[in-house]
Design a protein around this nucleic acid. Structure first.
Length: 288
DNA sequence: ACATTGACCTGGGAGC
DNA sequence: TGCTCCCAGGTCAATG
């Protein structure tokens, strides 16, 4: 479900609504078999501790305590919502409740259970946990030359590489299509064939789109909801994602949907030409 | 060391 | 109404 803008939206709301340094009063676990088994014992060791900050790295939400951190990943369908009445109406896939000293109850709901909650003992462990991750997708948080060099060393198709969190974090299947459309890059071009000036365009547009999407509260396609149960707004600004057979807003050619690495990619064949026809024939996939 | 594939889950929508 | 099939925003282990 959630890519960086959705995760960041949730983070901001949690940080804002929790107020100043609430303490952890109680955990309630309804179901422990999320993507990883919930570390109930460790989480229970946090009782009485202050939450000093809610932060984010890539698509992970970090609930920071004095020395430890609690990592929450939303997988495809995970969400946090705030309840204020202990008799709140439970839902089928509410797995975890975090009760705070200020009376708030934060409920983790996740139908598909691809998400998880992890306990991280200290900052060194946190560093190790995120060791493999690429930089945040904002120009002032990356070394541009280094990032481009890594991309150009990759043999993958650019759409697939954009999803690789080792190269850059935060981009998921929706935004990858949107970024490449706006950058006018064919999703099946191989990373090594893309010029530096084009990478410049891709990375600038990535920052632009993700920033705008955060300002819109993220995108909702099926079921992403923020902590108040509200949908995002950015899907209204999607230009290609989910628009198979619709007319391209720039040239009115039909938007195509192809499969790459088992996932849908949407693009405009006219606005996003394959420069090198030869390599298109070699790497081409069936068009749905 | 890389790139690609399938598996992990449930729910919703399309088509019959 | 009910059945089956397909699809879905993410990641990682297992393959080649």
């Amino acid at each position: 479900m959630p890519e960086l803008p959705e995760v960041e939206t949730v983070r901001r709301q949690m940080q804002h609504e929790m107020g100043k340094n609430p303490r952890i009063k109680k955990w309630i676990f309804h179901r422990s078999d999320l993507r990883f088994i919930l570390p109930q014992r460790d989480l229970n060791s946090s009782l009485g501790q202050e939450i000093t900050q809610i932060s984010r790295r890539a698509k992970y939400i970090l609930i920071k305590l004095k020395t430890a951190s609690i990592i929450s990943h939303l997988g495809m369908t995970g969400s946090w919502r705030k309840e204020v009445d202990v008799h709140f109406r439970r839902r089928k896939h509410d797995h975890v409740e975090l009760h705070l000293s200020n009376g708030q109850i934060w409920v983790y709901e996740d139908p598909r259970r691809f998400g998880f909650i992890k306990w991280i003992e200290n900052d060194q462990d946190l560093k190790n946990e995120f060791e493999e991750l690429g930089p945040e997708p904002f120009l002032n948080q990356m070394n541009f030359d280094q990032v481009v060099k890594k991309f150009r060393q990759s043999h993958a198709e650019v759409k697939i590489a954009l999803l690789n969190q080792k190269l850059i974090v935060g981009i998921g299947n929706i935004y990858a299509s949107e970024i490449l459309f706006r950058a006018k890059i064919h999703p099946q071009r191989t990373c090594s064939s893309i010029e530096i000036s084009e990478w410049d365009r891709i990375l600038k547009i990535t920052e632009e789109i993700l920033t705008q999407a955060i300002e819109s509260g993220g995108s909702t396609i099926q079921n992403y909801k923020n902590t108040k149960g509200e949908s995002g707004d950015f899907q209204k600004q999607h230009l290609v994602y989910g628009k198979k057979n619709k007319s391209c807003l720039h040239c009115s050619k039909k938007i195509l949907c192809i499969e790459q690495a088992g996932r849908s990619t949407f693009f405009c064949p006219k606005c996003q030409p394959m420069k090198n026809k030869k390599s298109r024939i070699q790497t081409g996939r069936k068009i749905k």
